[in-house]
Amino acid sequence: MTSPLQQKIKITGPSVVTANRTIDGVVVYRSADQRWATDLAEAAIVRDAPTARALLAEAAADDVGAVGAYIAPVLIAADGTVLPGNLREQIRRDGVSITLPSVR
């Protein structure tokens, strides 16, 4: 299997590194101070392939903290708010788009 670090990195806009926390699978983002944060606002933003590669390598090295790190697109709103770059990432950040059966 090709490790994510060996894959070609192509980014077309602002991006973050995201993964799932090992202990419980919760969605996390790599912060600039080398932590896993649950809030997208705390994610380090990268804008070119070499920086993205470096962030991914640094994040993936923490195999105990989180699993399956990858680069995901984000959008930066006019007021600077960081938003998920696609539906998949939006669902990962916000949770399922439906009401859970147990709270119906």
């Binding site: 799932n20 699978g25 919760v26 699993v67 399956g68």
Partner: peptide
């Protein structure tokens, strides 16, 4: 491979 042999997948927001 060990978790998969015990039915554990990693999905979008959780195991």
């Amino acid at each position: 491979p060990l978790r998969l042999m015990n039915g554990v997948y990693l999905q979008l927001h959780a195991y």
